[in-house]
Amino acid sequence: MTQQDGKSTTLGVAVIAHGEDEIRVVPRRMVGRWIGAAVVSIAAAWVIYQLVTNPAYDWGTVWHYFLDGTVLQGLWMTLLLTALTMVAGALLGVLLAIMRLSGNPVMTVASTTFIWFFRGTPALVQLIFWFNLATLFPQISLGIPFGGPAFWSASTNALVTPFIAAMLGLGLNEGAYMAEIVRGGILSVDRGQDDAVRALGLRPWQGMRRIVLPQAMRSIIPATGNQTIGMLKYTSLASIVALHELLYSVQTIYNVTFQTIPLLIVASVWYLILTTVLSLAQVKVEQHFSRGERGSASDTRGRWGRLIHAVVTRGSVRHA
């Protein structure tokens, strides 16, 4: 490209001049890379070819139902359920994390047991369990426990709607995961920060709020972003209790029209759009919380590289 001091670089070939002798430097041949690239290219070409030519995809039906009223209603429910379960899960998670780190043995054991139970049983099972709560407690009352008088009482079946069952099943499960994320974030902050906070005479809660939690956010935010993206997809579990969310809404259509694949594609495309938007939002939030960090001002990937990287890596990660 440029010629200076007898040293030149062209694409792949460098020429180094030592006095009169010129030595050509040829990069090593990477045969494996070429073979790998060829295999992947062929596979990709086949994927595109069959997407275009296989009539069973029925792209016309996909576009026909893409903005259908029933689908959009389901989409709204999916968004609402995701937002509410994440807010509930985050609040519960902070509470459980602080209980666990409090040093009070009763609090620690209570928090640990909660996390053990709700992280150790599948969200789907919990969801079905809450939906069938009436079998265990036909009536729910507010009053003095252990046989005292009740001030208020209602039928469990009327109270635990599909939406409430989904909120309980997914929200409690999420709370257990968020508790571990928040706890990990707090513990990831250097112990020297706590020394500095105490030596300056800050109160414990001042140090937590002003110094420790803002730094813990650096690891809490990316993990919470992953959880939110995961939750968006996990809300589809609520279709099992007939909650009218995105998956259930396409199911109600294909149960009548038998266009199963096109309608599942409708749902998938919507899920992809939503997870992509969430990933972009997450990058913005992370930039805000990485203030003062090395590399926050100049990531070598550049703006678009970071966005693409974030979308590609975050779209697929989720706990079991």
Binding site: D190, D195, A196, L200, G201, L202, R203, Q215, E293
Partner: peptide, 23 residues
């Protein structure tokens, strides 16, 4: 804790690893 924080605020401390607040 309140009194202790009051006492600590009278004693400055400088650490080996600085412990500045990075954010």
């Amino acid at each position: 804790v309140r009194q202790l924080c009051q006492q600590r605020s009278m004693i400055g401390m400088v650490f080996q690893n600085f412990n500045l607040f990075p954010h």
